[in-house]
Design a protein around this nucleic acid. Structure first.
Length: 425
RNA sequence: GGAGAGGUGGCCGAGUGGCCGAAGGCGCUCCCCUGCUAAGGGAGUAUACCGCAAGGUAUCGAGGGUUCGAAUCCCUCCCUCUCCGCCA
């Protein structure tokens, strides 16, 4: 959520910033008009309330003194009715304002390149050699099915499309990756592990920006205010929602493994085969809560923490800066880490690292205080996958495949798989 | 699922219709005294909004109602805890 004060004082610069995302009318003009009306009404209502408070106090005193107060009471009652009508209108405006505000995306950071869509994203660095095969590399789902470690057919029998059943070394690989990633971020990068709920309330979903706008992308529990998380970002970033943090405790660095659930509405026909796009997938997520002045630097560090996983696994990748048109709703700046996928002869997103500046903190009412007597301020929130586990499996299977259909286990991962160094038939 | 208790400021905890944004305590900040640990004295210490300011308004789980006036009374909802049942 953007700051209404900033919109009020600087509508042009906010609109210019939003324009970088595309030419969409977010209702800023209407917002400003409503805000003006609201403040005028509030002033009137407050004055009337002062009148009522004073009068009521007098009535109390008179009653104690045994005087008649019928007339005074009637007058105050009238004032009360006026107050009510003002308050009702204010409430109405509030909800309109909130609705507009909740549906305005974040303003892109100045350093974000301008562009309409993913074609304008800017590659900023590359790591690793793209593997050369002297045979035609197979897609991961063929390898996985042949090795007996991935079973899409039976998963479909259980749950329908976009689910997978991991078996044997496949299930072990998934589990090993989760532990490998967690251990690295905890022990080497200084993150604190948290294990949050996988179902959260609408309020929590609103805090990070999934609701109200993106309900179609989520799974909801029928008849209850519970939604399946599409990413650990949602529960973890919201941990301190509504609280005032101690500035000395910042930055908070948390890492969480959770499954993620996405309806994938609107992605019919895309990535229909294999592990790339599933309704349920595992992810290790990094979340930071920082002081405003540290957020860009902490985003850089978080991104390199995620990259480190791919380096250790010897998987080739590149990092791109998302252009303004490709930026997520709540994000001010995003680096995508993309891993090489041989069967598609391209890089595919495996992590998305973003700073939301104060946008999420304001939505969820999370603040911090620099000094004991200081004013509360909004911290910045940052998150990124470290990494998406299913897509890491894709990358390992495809990049590490041999001519005979076996798959090498990266040396760094082997200890997590009981010393296994090759997955064979 | 059944029965009961409760939700007040950073924390504990008083408050059952007006003088209560809220006693007292703890914690924290500053000052004094003392002097290098401890103890004592004083002042301060919620948040948001409106306003140049003075100041004003709102908030005692949430929402609604009664009343001239609600932390206090009524209704609905949410959450927490205890006991019983069931259960990973």
């Amino acid at each position: 959520m953007l700051d209404i004060k900033q919109i009020r004082e600087n509508p042009e610069s906010i609109e210019a910033g939003l324009l970088k995302r595309g030419n969409v009318d977010y209702g800023i003009g209407k917002l400003i008009a409503l805000d003006k009306e609201r403040r005028d009404l509030l002033q009137m209502a407050d004055d009337l309330k002062k009148l009522r408070n004073d009068a009521s106090r007098e009535i109390g005193a008179k009653k104690k003194a045994g005087e008649n107060t019928d007339e005074a009471q009637a007058r105050v009652k009238e004032t009360g009715e006026k107050i009510k009508s003002h308050d009702d209108r204010i409430k109405e405006i509030d909800s309109e304002v909130r609705q507009i505000l909740f549906n305005i995306p974040n303003v892109p950071d100045e350093s974000v390149p301008e562009g309409a869509d993913e074609n304008a994203n800017v590659e900023i660095r590359k790591f690793g050699e793209i593997p050369k095969f002297d045979f035609v590399p197979k897609p991961h789902h063929e390898l996985g099915e042949a090795l007996g470690i991935l079973d899409f057919k039976r998963a479909a029998k259980l749950s329908g499309a976009r689910f997978v059943l991991y078996k044997g070394a496949g299930a072990l690989l998934e589990r090993a990756l989760i532990n490998f990633m967690l251990d690295m971020h905890i022990n080497e990068h200084g993150y604190t592990e948290v294990a949050p709920p996988y179902m959260v309330s609408a309020e929590t979903m609103t805090g990070t920006g999934q609701l109200p706008k993106f309900a179609d992308d989520l799974f909801k529990i029928e008849g209850r205010d519970l939604w399946l998380i599409p990413t650990a970002e949602t529960p973890v970033t919201n941990i301190y929602a509504g609280e005032i943090l101690n500035g000395d405790d910042l930055p908070l660095k948390m890492v969480a493994y959770t499954p993620c659930f996405r309806s994938e509405a609107g992605s019919y026909g895309r990535d229909t085969t294999g592990l790339i796009r599933q309704h349920q997938f595992n992810k290790v997520e990094l979340v930071k809560i920082t002081k405003p002045e540290d957020s860009i630097n902490e985003l850089e560090k978080l991104t390199s923490n995620a990259e480190e996983v791919l380096k250790r696994l010897q998987l080739p990748y590149r990092v791109v800066t998302l252009c303004s048109g490709d930026l997520g709703f709540s994000a001010a700046k995003t680096y995508d880490i993309e891993v090489w996928v041989p069967s598609q002869n391209t890089y595919r997103e495996i992590s998305s690292c973003s700073t939301f500046v104060d946008y999420q903190a304001r939505r969820m009412g999370m603040r911090f205080r620099r000094e004991a007597k200081g004013k509360p301020e909004f911290p910045h929130t940052i998150n990124g996958s470290g990494l998406a586990v299913g897509r890491t499996v894709v990358a390992i299977l495809e990049n590490m495949q041999e001519a005979d259909g076996s798959v090498r286990v990266p040396a760094a991962l082997s200890p997590y798989m009981g010393g296994l160094d090759k997955i064979v038939m």
